[in-house]
């Protein structure tokens, strides 16, 4: 479990922000505004991208070509954000994203990472025992499916574009997006209709 910050850390943060404010480097108002901007990023953005890709071949092609542009097309400002890469599942290949070195995560389209993504257990095990990790979600892949674990080590941030589930013929993008939770976008879960 995540634990609350210790009193030393809280005191250090207070002194640090006070020093930065006193020097005019960063003000309290700027911190508040930045938190507000950051809070806007949410897995629903990634879900909307996936649903649009499932229903719009041109957008699907754009996602493959340039994930950052595809995010911009959904109204997300990617200025200053690392490039977004999209990992396309196909029959027989499923992607799972981890960062073994720290916790790189496509924050522009998924928001803050959940605690488990940052945990030592996930970081250590995903590259070695991916099927055991998926089992913790109750996720089993169709027979014969290979797992491609993507260790997000460098300049890109990665999201998964899963296969559109069967039983969703005729669904519109809004309804499809409802099937795509955050963990689907990381690859620990599969979207399921119904």
């Amino acid at each position: 479990m995540a634990h609350a910050p210790g009193p030393d850390s809280i005191a250090l943060l207070d002194r640090f922000t006070a020093a930065l404010a006193a020097r005019g480097v960063v003000t309290e108002a700027q911190i508040a505004a930045q938190i507000e901007r950051t809070d806007l990023a949410d897995p629903r953005i990634g879900a909307a991208m996936v649903a649009r890709a499932w229903t719009d071949p041109d957008y699907h092609a754009l996602m493959l070509r340039d994930g950052s542009q595809a995010a911009e097309a959904m109204g997300v400002s990617m200025a200053g954000a690392p490039p977004l890469g999209v990992l396309v599942d196909r029959p027989g290949v499923h992607h799972l994203v981890v960062c073994t070195l720290c916790s790189c995560y496509p924050r522009a389209v998924l928001g803050y990472p959940p605690h488990w993504y940052k945990s030592a257990a996930y970081r250590a095990r995903a590259v070695r025992d991916p099927r055991g990790v998926l089992a913790e979600w109750g996720t089993t892949l169709p027979e014969g499916t290979e797992i491609r674990v993507v260790d997000s080590t460098a300049d890109y941030r990665w999201m998964v574009l899963p296969l559109r589930p069967t039983g969703t013929e005729g669904w519109d993008a809004a309804r499809l997006a409802g099937l795509v939770g955050r963990d689907v976008l990381v690859g620990t879960q599969l979207p399921v209709a119904g």
């Binding site: 073994t100 250590a124 963990d183």
Partner: peptide, 16 residues
């Protein structure tokens, strides 16, 4: 810590 044996039996908790 990719693959680190010390965490191999530590569960990942999806609800965390």
């Amino acid at each position: 810590i990719g693959g680190a044996p010390r965490f191999r039996c530590t569960p990942v908790e999806p609800d965390d």
